[in-house]
Design a protein around this nucleic acid. Structure first.
Lengths: 188, 188
DNA sequence: ACCTGAACACCGTTCAAGT
DNA sequence: ACCTGAACACCGTTCAAGT
């Protein structure tokens, strides 16, 4: 056990990276880029793509996992620097911004509950939201009985609005609506 | 002009009805039923399908137009029989129920703003929501400054939740969240 | 006028054959 | 072990040919 990786896997790992890089850029310019076109862009046979990512969902997850981890890590960072409600708002905005750039995120969150593969990632996102909401509730900024998963699902649904200025504004208004529904501005 | 229809169109109208009937039942059991399979089920060439409904959107609209008209008409009916807030709630539930059965409705509403074809239908739905919200606002049940289109879009987004008991319950909770955000329970 | 269905240019996914 | 790419079973859409 000199090395964690078997020697023979060097090419496989190389291919994996090539696929991820190709998928990342393909998804950025078109969230519906075909698997076949991604294999081609990566310079790899279709079979190889499917060997590494047996499902489109798996590929999307591979591409966005890092960004989502960053988002999850951002929760505590914001919570440490801002009042709870401000931290929650900023996190929601970052989520929206990230989701707007990488439109696959919405599908990922939507599929997450039924897909074994992405359960971990999803669970950590829910955890981040839970912490942010709990901090607000503790300060009395909003009601304490709300399901963080409902809130995250709502944020994910809002990503489906058209990626235009109008869609973004509507999403922002609906986020504010949700926060008011959670009790913002009705007590303290 | 003895008749509103030219004689020669009898077969065309027959085909149109056959297509609509086939599409209705196909969409009911699978919202993503292919155009090709619908043409086949209708006993019609693909070209005929495309002649009548040049786009999938047009076909969806053809199938759901009547149901949506019913939904629009339901607004005033409920408003006449119930207090405004109750009427609004009931309408939302009917919308959700209808959308759950016919999953194409959500896409229709989502696409409506950018699609010329369905603008009328969409506009009438917004009108129904506007009236219901306005009646509530007038009675002081909720804040008067909210965009009915935002509300309708939110309802349409909620249709995208998985059609399970869990998804339905989440949608119901998020609807209540929105109503609280609109001021329900904070005035009188 | 309207209809048909073969044909085109794609998909996602699989799997025999290669190294 | 891993890779390739032809092949399969589909799509949505078009359009020459028929009636």
């Amino acid at each position: 056990m000199v090395d964690a990786d078997d020697r023979i896997r060097a090419d496989a790992r190389f291919n994996r990276e090539r696929i991820l890089a190709a998928a990342r850029s393909a998804f950025t310019e078109n969230a519906e880029a075909s698997m076949q076109s991604i294999a081609k862009a990566a310079g790899v046979g279709q079979g190889t793509l499917y060997r590494h990512f047996p499902t489109r969902e798996a590929l999307v997850l591979g591409v966005y996992r890092k960004g989502i981890d960053d988002l999850v890590a951002l929760g505590p960072t914001l919570a440490a620097s801002y009042p709870p409600l401000k931290a929650l708002r900023l996190w929601c905005e970052r989520f929206a911004e990230y989701g707007r750039q990488k439109r696959g995120v919405a599908d990922l969150v939507r599929a997450a509950m039924t897909d074994e593969l992405s359960r971990d990632t999803y669970g950590r996102m829910v955890g981040a939201v839970r912490t942010l909401l709990a901090a607000c509730a503790e300060k009395g900024d909003l009601r304490p009985d709300f399901d963080p998963e409902d809130f995250l699902q709502l944020l994910a649904l809002l990503l489906q609005l058209p990626p235009t200025a109008e869609g973004d504004e509507r999403a922002a208004r609906l986020r504010e609506l949700a926060l008011r529904g959670l009790g913002v501005g009705s007590g303290h």
